[in-house]
Design a protein around this nucleic acid. Sequence first.
DNA 1: CAATATACCTCGCCTGTCAAGGTATATTTT
DNA 2: AAAATATACCTTGACAGGCGAGGTATATTG
Lengths: 107, 107
Amino acid sequence: MSITSDILRGHTEAIILSHLLEQDSYGYQINKDIMKKTDNRYELKEATLYSAFKRLEQAGYIRTYWGDETVGARRRYYAVTENGRKAYQSYKSEWEEAKTIIDQLLK
Amino acid sequence: MSITSDILRGHTEAIILSHLLEQDSYGYQINKDIMKKTDNRYELKEATLYSAFKRLEQAGYIRTYWGDETVGARRRYYAVTENGRKAYQSYKSEWEEAKTIIDQLLK
DNA sequence: CAATATACCTCGCCTGTCAAGGTATATTTT
DNA sequence: AAAATATACCTTGACAGGCGAGGTATATTG
C-alpha cells in the first residue's frame, strides 16, 4: 500500500461504478479486484466500500440483489442503474478536469 | 467553481508549496493567484489556506516573516524551507502515482 | 462617507475514510 | 476433531481536511 487515502478521497464512488460497469459484483470481490488491478498499491477498505455502497444506492446509482449461492456465504450483488451510468460519465469528466488543474498547479 | 473539494482534498499543501517555490508570497495573494492560474475553475478558500499554512509550518515545510509594508495592511509572507522542498518532491511523485492508479481504475 | 478592496484570522459543522469490532459459513491445516 | 484461515456480510465511532460564516484593521474609490 502506498497511496494515501486523502489523495484517493472522493474517487471511491467513481471507482466502484467503473468496476461495476464491467460486470455486476459484490463487496468482497470488488475489494479483491481493486487490489489486484493496482498490484496491491491501493486497497479500497471494506468500511469505505460499504459506506460508498450506501451513498450510491441512496443516490439511485446502483441497485442490489442477493446471489443464489447454494454453498458458501451469501453474496449481495450490485448493479449500475441508468442514472449511475450517467453519474459515472460525470465523475469521469470531473476527474479529467481535476487532473488538468492539479497538473497545472503542481509544476 | 467546478472542482469539488473532495477531489482536491489532500492536494492543498502540495499546491501551496508549488506556488511558494516560484516565489515567497502571502495568503491573500496566493488565493488570488490560484484562481487566476486556473481561470477561476478552482479557488483555494481562505479558511482552507490558513489551516494548511498551520500544518505546513508545524511540519517545518514553510517559515513565515512579516513584510515591511509602510502602506496598506501588513502581510505575512511564507517561504519554503529545505524540508519543504523535499516534501514537495514527495507530494509530486505521490500525485504521479495516484494519477496512474486512478486512470487505471476509471477506464 | 459608504462601499469595496486589501489583508489577516478563528470557530464549528460536515463529510469521507477506516480501524476495530461483530456475525456466519466453508475450507484447509495441524 | 479442533484450530486456523478464507469467504462473505455489516456497523460504530474517531479522525482529519475543507470551508461557510464570522470577525478585525487599513486603504482606496465612487
